[in-house]
Amino acid sequence: MTPTAGTIDKNEYFFGHKACAGCGGSLTVRIALKILGPRAVAVLPAGCMSAVGFNFPQLAFLNNAIISTFAGTASMMTGLEAGLRARGERDCTVVGFAGDGGTADIGLQALSGALDRGDNILYICYDNEAYMNTGVQKSGLTPFGARTTTTPAGARVRGNVREKKNMLRIVAAHGAPYAATASVGYLDDYMRKVQKAAGLRGVKYLHVLAPCPTGWGIASDETVEVAKEAVDCGLFPLYEYEGGAFRQTVAPKGGSIERHLRRQRRFQHLTDEDIAHITVRRASET
């Protein structure tokens, strides 16, 4: 049974970290570890969550956690899983928490390799849609039109000209046993997926939309609301891929794409045509 707010593990495995106030990424990590419990072994590459979790001597993980190379999240997970198995350790979930850059750009090859080998790991990408801890540079998962420091908005070019990579389809194309999108705006759905994934064998992949107040230009108390809105207006649909088929797990409640974009400072320069482009593209994908 999926835990609820009342039944979930009361222990805090990610606590006292230095993430910005209202950080969606830290909520992603905190909730996953509460589901996976004290025997989870976490791997974090360079990125926000390692930068805020390991500030020696301030170490914010209660369970075993280790920093990997930026490119090597999945390969370190492979090694840890093999090592734990060799030592006869049981009931340990090897879980990775990598950002969008560490997953879709820099760590993609290692993830692809693990998927090819079919290692028994749980890979969680917290997607805040840019390289946030280094100061908001564009990643392969930055959406069209978003202003970052490397895709500035000016008179001629209005933010990022590229579309966001579809990581769920990339992972599904490897024939993964389980892959899903999730959002910190729908924690019940996310918790169910973490628990389900932990019980399956092979490479499980979760892609979690985790808004960043600092990089997105939203208030620190709007993280959850904006993450929910992204699902409801159809820009970030919640899917599950299992047994070769995709299934939608949360029906979008509807809502204005324009309102959702315009409340974020990173999209404030967009013209009506840009918003129309995003709307048409969304419709063509679903």
Partner: peptide, 12 residues
Amino acid sequence: LCLRCYLHCPDG
């Protein structure tokens, strides 16, 4: 005590 606040707190 619905605990929605507890569940959603990024800092626990």
